[in-house]
Simulated scan of single mutants.
Amino acid sequence: MTEFMDLHFDLLINIFLRWSAKPLMQFKSVCKSWYYLISSPQFTELHLDQTLAQSNPNLRFVFSAPHLSSAEFDTFDRITELDNPFRSQGFAHVVGSCHGLLCLCNYDLHLTILLYNPTTRTYKKLPFLPKPSSLSHRYSFGFGYEKESRDYKFVRILQSNEGTGPFKSQVMVYSLKMDSWVRAPDVPSPFFSYREDGVLVNGTLHWVHEFMHKDEKRYSIVGFCLGNNSFIEVPQPKFEEQLINLRDGVLEGCLCLMVNDLEYSDIWVLKEYGVAESWARLFKVKQSQQLMFLEWPIAYSLNRQKLFLQLNTWRVVSLDLQTMVIKDVKVCDFPRCFDTQVCIENLIMLKGSGSEALDHQQGTKKRRRRRRRKHVHRRRNISVDENLES
């Protein structure tokens, strides 16, 4: 009998692993055993690994326009405004996404940081981290996953804008597994990035550093390794054209660069991480309008005939990979679209520092709905009895 139960349990797991996250969330209400199975961290990790291994997982396009919303990828229809915790508390900037989790920052609430899962509608508020100095400073952020420790981490880098003073920089790393901050080594040399949010590739966050050298704008790629909390410099390709700007991004797990000049935008990709010789130019796109630069790639279309890209004018476009023609993509009625991400659905439950309040609120609403249904049902029964008596 025990062997039969074990076989039945293993079979149930294999069946559940074939389903996407949203139906499984509904399955949790069937019975207690299903609830505990689907809610378990072990099954959540198995399901996430299974989803990541799929060639075409269930994807959602997340964007701000101006409210944080999601849509089907890559049709961009069935738009839903996300009920994130910052919805009524100001603008929610998306620092990054990883495995379907969104890292949100609210500048109006003293740089409050949240990790938010749109699928399970749970979130985690990071412990408050004060600024070390009242002097002028600049921020760099990053969010990602460290594979060895299976931990999600957020990085906050502060650098002083002042030429003098004791404070130069502060690098703080938050671990979701430990739910705490640790201080990492300071920035070895100051860097300035137009895009303050780091790009995650190979367990390392990347920023493009812009600087002047002999009255000429130069660039370097600064990396921060989440595994050992250390800074590195990533080799970049050799460009032939005169640059106007350089932007970094990620495309199918590879670090890529948007190299923009007045006539063309080139898309380069680092095929083998850490090997400078593996930089290759994938596409060369003619500028259709001056100063309309490529910011970062979003993702290939599901049929791989197009590449969706974010422009510096807060627009989403599609690049036809056969004709190299760029066309606007209408995502919603709002003329601008930014903070674009492509996310998978997952079962990760974020608990603590506010999530319980959200769960309690959702549970209260469900209990109220049940009470209302019972009340309506009871009133109907009374009405039927009165009619029969009459």
Results as ranks from 00 to 15, higher is better:
E233F: 11
E233K: 14
V234F: 07
V234T: 15
V234I: 15
V234L: 11
P235H: 09
P235M: 03
P235D: 02
P235G: 05
Q236T: 00
Q236W: 01
P237N: 09
P237H: 03
K238R: 08
F239I: 07
F239A: 08
F239G: 12
F239D: 05
F239T: 13
F239K: 07
E240S: 13
E240D: 09
E241T: 11
E241W: 06
E241F: 13
E241C: 10
Q242T: 11
L243F: 08
L243I: 03
I244W: 10
N245F: 05
N245A: 05
N245C: 15
N245Q: 06
L246G: 03
L246F: 02
L246R: 08
L246Q: 05
L246E: 06
R247Q: 08
D248E: 15
G249H: 01
G249D: 00
V250Y: 01
V250W: 03
V250G: 04
V250P: 02
L251Q: 11
L251R: 09
L251C: 03
L251F: 10
E252Y: 07
E252I: 01
E252K: 12
G253Q: 12
G253T: 14
G253H: 14
C254E: 02
L255Q: 00
C256N: 04
C256K: 01
L257R: 03
L257H: 04
L257D: 02
L257Y: 02
L257K: 04
M258V: 08
M258P: 07
M258S: 06
M258N: 07
M258H: 09
M258E: 12
V259M: 15
N260A: 09
N260M: 07
N260V: 03
D261H: 06
D261R: 10
L262K: 07
L262A: 09
L262T: 06
L262F: 12
E263C: 06
Y264W: 08
Y264P: 13
Y264F: 10
Y264S: 08
Y264A: 03
Y264N: 13
S265F: 02
S265I: 07
D266T: 13
D266R: 10
D266C: 12
